[in-house]
């Protein structure tokens, strides 16, 4: 028996919108502490890791660990039918081949049930090692989205370099080059507007902008984004979900041949 009631249902809608274009289908792993998902995109260049802890739910019941394979496009279609203010409940029964999404309007005058077919997914689970990163940049998520979008109009790849001067995003394409430098800036009115650069060692890595732009679909989930880099490790682009968990995107670097 599985029953999860999320008062802020829009969060789940936003989570789906942020990952559904990257990953077609994935296993949702439910346990008593919350639910998680880990999946690579079809080309194995990017990986998404989602965690939503049980504390963030108004009601959370999961009698035993269970994994449900869902097509994210289909799940997104169903969640789009929920209003932004709706309470969303996910329900499942042991051994069933369906999952039910229940949407309740805030005034309880409209209640909808959507039952979705589950699927068997052969997914490989990867161990993500704990790492000490050379550099961690925390910045406003909207600024990061703007930079990725702007650079993608010039080139296909971005070089992200962190030095003690700041963080530099560079690209080059047929029409020319672009460099955007952000300096650490903590003298802001609101903490979420700050750019904070933690650098142990300088680092410079190259990534495909197409993927970075896909990750920025998670911007509505969080005012800030954290970018963690070490040479010879995938970059981690993390959007924290307040009080509940995170969506983390890992992107393999482009490397010199």
């Amino acid at each position: 028996m599985l029953e999860l009631r999320l008062v802020q249902g829009s969060l789940l809608k936003k989570v789906l919108e942020s990952i559904k274009d990257l990953v077609n289908d994935a296993n949702f792993d439910f346990s008593s502490s919350g639910f998680s998902l880990q999946s690579m995109d079809s080309s194995h260049v990017a990986l998404v890791a989602l965690l939503l802890k049980s504390e963030g739910f108004e009601h959370y019941r999961c009698d035993r660990n269970t994994s449900m394979g869902m097509n994210l496009g289909n799940m997104s279609k169903m969640l789009k039918c929920a209003g932004n203010d709706d309470i969303i409940t996910i329900k499942g029964d042991d051994g069933s081949d369906t999952v039910t999404f229940m949407f309740e309007s805030p005034t309880q005058d409209k209640i909808a049930d959507f039952e979705m077919k589950l699927m068997d997914i052969d997914s490989e689970h990867l161990g993500i090692p704990e790492a000490e990163y050379h550099a961690i940049v925390k910045m406003p998520s909207a600024e990061f989205a703007r930079i990725c979008k702007d650079l993608a109009s010039i080139g296909d790849t971005v070089v992200i370099s962190v030095t003690k001067e700041g963080v530099k995003f560079s690209t080059r394409g047929d029409i020319g080059t672009a460099n955007i430098v952000l300096r650490q800036n903590t003298t802001v009115d609101k903490p979420e507007d700050a750019t904070v650069i933690e650098m142990n060692e300088p680092v410079s890595m190259t990534f495909a902008l197409r993927y970075m732009n896909s990750f920025t679909k998670a911007t509505p989930l969080s005012n800030t984004v954290t970018i963690s880099m070490s040479p010879d490790l995938p970059v981690v682009v993390e959007y924290k979900i307040a009080e509940m968990g995170y969506v983390r995107f890992y992107l393999a670097p482009k490397m010199e041949e």
Binding site: M40, V45, L126, P253, K254, M255, E257
Partner: peptide
């Protein structure tokens, strides 16, 4: 030029 690496180059199956 540079070549796109994959996640599985860095993280192992568990």
């Amino acid at each position: 030029g540079s070549k796109q690496s994959t996640i599985t180059k860095f993280f192992n199956k568990v």
